[in-house]
Amino acid sequence: MNPLHLEGTPDTPTITLNKADGIFEIAGRSLPEDVIEFYSPAIAWMKEYAKAPNPTTVFKFKLDYFNTASSKVILELLNALKDIKGMQVEWHYLEDDEDILDAGKEFAEQVTVPITFKAG
């Protein structure tokens, strides 16, 4: 399975999905003009990955800001992850960023995939 890497910009996060290296990460700011178009490759990649996943998968969200439209797609992505055996989600946030922490907690209430919160 080919890796997916989308380089971040001031308005879009960096997305790295690499089965061979075990790297599954979205990091940065998420304010794309067309959220569906931007995240579609990542959602499609994860659906394909779900057919033959690694024994353990740790998906890291390291977002420092995202808009409402992005939150809907993040929720869709989290829901896609729930069916992957051995899936773990890490929600990273800056220690003093209660907004990102609270957003992660809200996602955790809406999905069945386990989410671990990491300050730092």
Rank of each mutant, 00 (worst) to 15 (best):
Leu75Val: 11
Asp96Cys: 05
Asn54Ile: 02
Tyr65Asn: 11
Trp91His: 10
Met1Trp: 03
Glu48Gln: 15
Asn79Phe: 07
Lys72Leu: 08
Lys105Cys: 03
Asp96Trp: 08
Pro13Lys: 08
Gly28Glu: 07
Ala44Ser: 14
Glu37Gly: 12
Glu33Trp: 10
Phe38Gln: 00
Val58Tyr: 06
Arg29Ala: 12
Gly8Pro: 01
Ala50Leu: 01
Ala69Asp: 03
Leu17Pro: 01
Asn79Arg: 15
Ala119Val: 05
Glu37Leu: 06
Glu25Ala: 13
Val111Glu: 11
Ala80Gln: 15
Glu25Met: 15
Ala27Cys: 10
Asp83Val: 06
Phe117Ala: 06
Val111Met: 07
His5Thr: 15
Ile100Pro: 04
Met46Pro: 05
Asp11His: 07
Pro13His: 13
Asp11Val: 11
Leu81Ala: 07
Lys47Phe: 04
Lys51Val: 01
Gly86Trp: 00
Leu17Ala: 00
Phe107Ala: 06
Met1Pro: 04
Met46Cys: 00
Glu109Trp: 09
Glu76Leu: 11
Glu95Met: 14
Val113Ser: 06
Ala42Tyr: 07
Ala44Arg: 13
Leu17Arg: 03
Glu25Tyr: 04
Gly120His: 15
Thr112Glu: 13
Lys72Met: 02
Leu78Val: 12
Pro53Val: 01
Pro114Cys: 02
Trp91Asp: 04
Lys51Phe: 00
Val73His: 07
Pro10Met: 08
Glu95Asp: 15
Asn67Ser: 02
Asp64Thr: 10
Lys60Ala: 15
Asp11Ala: 12
Val35Ile: 10
Gly8Ile: 07
Ile15His: 00
Ala42Ile: 00
Asp99Val: 12
Lys60Phe: 03
Thr56Ile: 09
Glu37Ser: 08
Glu7Asp: 13
Glu90Gln: 13
Lys47Ala: 05
Ile26Gln: 05
Trp91Gln: 07
Lys51Pro: 08
Asn54Pro: 05
Leu4Met: 12
Leu4Gly: 03
Ser40Lys: 10
Phe66Trp: 08
Glu33Ile: 10
Asn67Asp: 08
Gln110Leu: 11
Pro32Phe: 04
Gly86Lys: 01
Asn79Ser: 11
Val58Lys: 11
Lys72Thr: 13
Ser30His: 04
Phe24Asn: 00
Phe117Leu: 03
Pro41Gln: 08
Ile43Asn: 09
Lys118Glu: 10
Thr112His: 10
Val73Cys: 04
Pro53Trp: 04
Leu63Tyr: 14
Ala20Gly: 00
Leu75Phe: 04
Asp97Val: 06
Lys47Leu: 06
Leu75Glu: 01
Glu106Ile: 08
Asp21Arg: 12
Lys72Asn: 00
Ala52Gly: 10
Ser40Leu: 14
Ile36Ala: 14
Ala27Leu: 14
Met87Arg: 04
Gly28Asp: 12
Asn2Asp: 09
Glu90Phe: 12
Pro10Phe: 13
Leu78Thr: 09
Pro114Met: 12
